Structure formats: C-alpha cells, structure tokens
Simulated assay, not measured.
Amino acid sequence: MSRLLIADDHPLFRAALRQAASENVPDGTIYEAADLASALTMLANEPDMDLVLLDLHMPGSQGLSGLAALRGQHPGVAVLVVSAHDEARTIRRVLDHGAAGFIPKSASPAEIGEAIRSVLDCGSWLPPALAQTIASLPADAADTNLAIRLARLTEQQYRVLALLGEGLLNKQIADRLSIQERTVKAHVTAIFEKLGVRNRTQASVLLQSLTLGEPARG
C-alpha cells in the first residue's frame, strides 16, 4: 500500500491533487500538510512515506528551500514538485536538488495521475512539452554542490539555518525553538562547518540562492 503526502497551502489545489491521487492509487493512504513544518513532522512520524507532492511556495518554504530541507532530512522519500514556476531552468534546478519530477500547476488531472504513477514505479516525470528542453540544459554545479552540503544538516540544524536566514540572533533562535542558547551556538558552529561558510552573512547568501522570483506569466 502506497503512502502519499500532499504538501500545499492552497485547499482547493490540495483537494485536486488528492482527487487525482485517489483515482490513480486507489489503495493508497493520503496525508495532507499546509506548511513545511507540518510536512516534515508528518514525515518524521510516518517513515514509510513513499511520495511527497510538494508545493514550492507555502509557509516555511519559499523557492527551493523546502525541497532542500525535505531531501536532506528524508532522502529515501521520492518528491514530485508541484508549482506554477514552470520555466525550464527552474525545473532543471528542481531536479538538481533531488526531485523525481515536476508537475506544473496547469497540468491536467490525467497528467497529475500519470506523474504520480510514474514516480511510484521508481521512474520520473516531466511536462512532455518541456522534457526535451529540460534534458538539454546542463546540471547546475552550484545547485548540485549546495544540495550535497545541505543534506549534511540535521533537522534541527536546518531549522536553525532557516532562522539565521531571517536575521534572528542566537537568543531569539533559542526562544523560538525552546532550546538553550549554548545549543544554538553549537548548531551554528556545525552549520558553518558543514556548509563551508564562515559567518551568518555567507549562510544567508546560500539560503537566498534557493529563492525564486514570481512565476512568469504570458
């Protein structure tokens, strides 16, 4: 029996994804999350999850940061990114950060179902109209390298990194996460070492590189 998690903060689109998943995986168990924190908690509680349908923009995740966190903390779970950011270069970056495929938010229910079945069968899926273009784009060495470095972080270290990116001081991070300030300092030291950065500014620049602009519109 397959286990799927739909992580999207838009109830209507979440319902559409659930409908497509239910029709194509009738014996599957489907979970839902409306923000990144809930998605990560659910994955921690359900280690046998097979597939996550992940929106790139929802509370706690802007751009590729949620994908990076999920892949780093749960590398055994397949991820299908679902987003309105359907430019070929963005999709190439999504693949470089470990996603098994990409579903545009303009995809039909049949395409969503096809993507889900393909990835559950250990395959991949890309929009047919863009597949050739995406395949012709070289992998981005910077993205690939960053994905490897982010994968070294523990779940708590990633939380600390995200708060560093918001400009919070150690004491503020300690209060937010309900941990000791000395524990935050230890996490920050480990984060700098694993990411190969020297200070908060450099760590924030790495996080900023994961953000995406507004989706292109015709």
Rank of each mutant, 00 (worst) to 15 (best):
A190P: 07
L95G: 00
L150H: 01
D140K: 02
R3C: 07
G72K: 00
E193Q: 14
I134W: 02
T154E: 14
Q202D: 14
D35T: 06
A100E: 07
A162M: 14
D140C: 08
P26R: 09
S118Y: 04
Y31P: 04
Q73G: 11
E46Q: 11
A69P: 02
D121A: 14
A88F: 09
G218N: 12
A84G: 01
R71K: 15
S22T: 12
A68L: 01
R71M: 09
A7K: 07
M42C: 12
S124N: 11
P11A: 05
G113C: 15
I6M: 10
G28F: 08
L137I: 06
C122E: 15
F192S: 03
R92P: 01
G123W: 10
H85G: 02
A129E: 14
A131S: 15
L36F: 08
V197D: 07
D140N: 10
A129T: 13
G66P: 10
R176S: 10
T183C: 07
F102Q: 01
R14E: 12
H85L: 03
L43C: 10
A39W: 04
A142Y: 10
L53A: 13
R149Q: 12
T41N: 15
I173H: 00
A110W: 05
R217Q: 15
A186H: 05
G101N: 03
S106F: 05
S22C: 10
T29A: 09
N170Y: 14
T144C: 15
S124K: 06
L70T: 00
L4E: 01
T144L: 13
R3Y: 06
T144A: 09
A78C: 09
A68R: 02
A135W: 11
T201R: 08
K171G: 10
L153R: 00
L210D: 02
K194N: 12
C122G: 07
A147L: 01
T144N: 06
L130P: 02
A100V: 02
S124F: 15
A78K: 04
A21N: 04
S108P: 05
R182L: 12
K185P: 01
A115W: 04
